[in-house]
């Protein structure tokens, strides 16, 4: 098999790729942050005493975790039209990624909260700590410390998964790559190229997580 690589094809189109990578970062970054908010609420709901809240949160998590992202994407993109909301693909991608990432993160955060012993809260109060201090030092920080590594892993998975959004015409890195592919048929060069970009973005996510981790917890992780 002989094959002459033409790396100048992706290199000459570097601006489009970088633009696509930025769009992927924007899309997945926003979705991860919003997803985290959703997840905290859903995790609290899952652990609450109200049956209805618990049931609703459980149904949300199970429905999303057990179905493919592309189906969710189709439902938000085409399904919302039925109720009169006609959004463009990029917004739909962010919404669906938020819903998706939120469901996975809910379980991570729930496990984190449950890892803290009930007794510790009482111990904190009996030591004369205020409720805020107990929340901050006994609940929030230890929980964050437990959930940080799996959250990093989840956010990277969300970022990589965002490539599916190109199917409903959301313009991001995979879309940019496939556009150039259809024009030039240089599938190999383009795919290797976007793989490297995805890898770099994954490293960036990882790095940001360990950096904030060091700052917040002043603790070194094994290797994030």
């Amino acid at each position: 098999m002989s094959y002459t690589f033409h790396w100048e094809v992706p290199l000459r189109n570097l601006p489009q790729f970088l633009w696509g990578a930025l769009a992927t970062l924007e899309m997945s970054g926003v979705a991860c942050l919003l997803g985290l908010l959703v997840a905290v609420c859903a995790a609290l709901a899952r652990l609450s005493k109200h049956r209805f809240l618990r049931g609703a949160a459980t149904a949300y998590v199970e429905a999303i975790r057990n179905t493919p992202f592309i189906v969710q994407l189709f439902y938000v993109y085409f399904g919302l039209v039925v109720v009169g909301v006609n959004l463009e693909a990029f917004s739909v991608a962010i919404i669906t990624l938020t819903i998706n990432c939120g469901a996975y993160s809910t379980e991570i955060i729930r496990a984190g909260i449950q890892s803290i012993h009930r007794g510790q809260t009482e111990a904190g109060l009996s030591l004369g700590m205020t409720h805020w201090q107990v929340f901050r030092h006994v609940i929030l920080l230890p929980t964050l410390r437990v959930v940080w590594p799996p959250l990093a892993s989840q956010f990277i998975a969300t970022m990589l998964g965002s490539s599916v959004a190109s199917q409903i015409s959301a313009e991001e890195l995979t879309y940019a790559g496939m556009m150039l592919e259809s024009r030039t048929f240089r599938t190999f060069e383009i795919f290797f190229f976007i793989t490297i970009l995805y890898f770099l973005m994954a490293r960036l996510f990882s790095f940001l997580f360990s950096l904030t981790g060091h700052k917040v917890f002043r603790e070194a992780w094994g290797q994030l």
Binding site: F78, V81, N86, A89, S169
Partner: peptide, 18 residues
Amino acid sequence: IVRYEDDPVAMLAFEQKK
């Protein structure tokens, strides 16, 4: 121009006035 992955999805998008 909005570009979809395959024909049925593009058709559905047109039918739904996207």
